[in-house]
């Protein structure tokens, strides 16, 4: 886990510095003295490996991601504090949407295989994966904010403002979870142990809830980690559409501005995040499947 993070930090650091252009490039050429002063102030005049070591040293010892190179007087820590929680909230809500829609959809489709409900559910799923956020977002705004007036058009903070963006972000993933749940469920209900459960005289409901669901959820759990990471990091489009002051939007601006400090910090945080998310999945997995727990 630690080597992975170090590797990621070196690659991002190298890439950020390797790309032509720097944070102090402006339309008008600055006088070389001023430029040299600025670079000295931010430590950019030192050899790149020294810059890297200083940077990592500050993070590890002080949890200090340094000053923003573009926004005067603002540290990266401050920027994180202001924007990261928003993206995290959005990501978690989107994952909830994905699970709450996807799992029931998959179960119903599997139990009513090849009926109207199956086709309807899987139709919704195809729609969910194939329609991109950039279309779905405005569509939701148009229907539920403008036409029906149920939710505000944009913004973030009040629960009512969170509904549409969470759906816009989570629906695609709910489709993936739905299809996976369906496939997994169809496989499980053909297993011998389901026949054993039937032979005991249990009701269909008990057979599904007690004997099938947990087994069916095992493959679904494996995709949740990467999915959660993708949802919390891939929020740029949705944040843009709904004018949400999250990290995704900020990250892209920082890339174009060459704000190395913000780019690096965000990438590192996301990397840590991904690693933790995968760890959480492994734990869930072991919880679901005793065969893993004991080996």
């Amino acid at each position: 886990m630690i080597p992975v993070l170090i590797f990621i930090s070196i690659v991002t650091f190298g890439l950020a510095h390797g790309v032509p252009g720097g944070p102090f490039d402006t339309e008008k050429k600055r006088p070389p003295e001023i430029r040299a002063n600025l670079e000295k102030y931010y430590g950019l005049d030192k050899p790149i490996y020294i810059q890297y070591l200083n940077y990592m040293g500050n993070i590890i010892t002080k949890f200090d991601f340094g000053p923003s190179l573009v926004q005067r007087g603002r540290t990266v820590n401050e920027i994180f504090a202001a924007h990261l929680p928003v993206s995290a909230q959005l990501g978690i809500l989107a994952l909830l949407v994905a699970l709450l829609i996807g799992i029931p959809l998959g179960i119903v489709a599997a139990l009513k295989q090849n009926t109207f409900w199956d086709y309807l559910g899987m139709g919704i799923a195809v729609f969910g994966v194939s329609v991109p956020n950039i279309v779905l977002g405005p569509l939701l705004i148009w229907i539920f904010a403008l036409a029906l007036g149920w939710f505000p058009v944009a913004g973030w903070g009040k629960p009512s403002q969170m509904v549409l963006p969470s759906i816009a972000l989570g629906l695609g993933s709910s489709a993936i979870i739905g299809r996976l749940t369906r496939a997994s469920m169809l496989q499980v209900i053909r297993e011998d142990y389901i026949r054993t459960a039937r032979a005991k005289g249990l009701t269909e409901r008990v057979i599904m809830v007690r004997h099938a669901l947990k087994n069916a959820f095992i493959p679904v759990a494996t995709v949740l980690g990467p999915m959660f990471a993708a949802l919390t990091t891939g929020t740029f489009v949705v944040e843009q559409i709904f004018a949400i002051p999250g990290m995704g939007k900020y990250f892209i601006t920082s890339v174009t501005n060459r704000d190395y400090a913000v780019v690096m910090g965000t990438t590192l945080l996301y990397a840590v995040f991904l690693v933790i998310a995968n760890l959480a999945v492994d734990i869930t997995y072991a919880f679901l499947d005793p065969r893993i727990r004991y080996t």
Partner: peptide, 28 residues
């Protein structure tokens, strides 16, 4: 029929490796 299954007539299947549910304890 459910009152009969597992109660008055019960059944043991061929493959003991796949006929028990892997995620539930023997007790359950």
């Amino acid at each position: 029929m459910r009152q009969v299954r597992g109660n008055k007539i019960s059944m043991v299947f061929q493959d003991p490796m796949t006929s028990l549910n892997p995620v539930l304890t023997i007790a359950r």
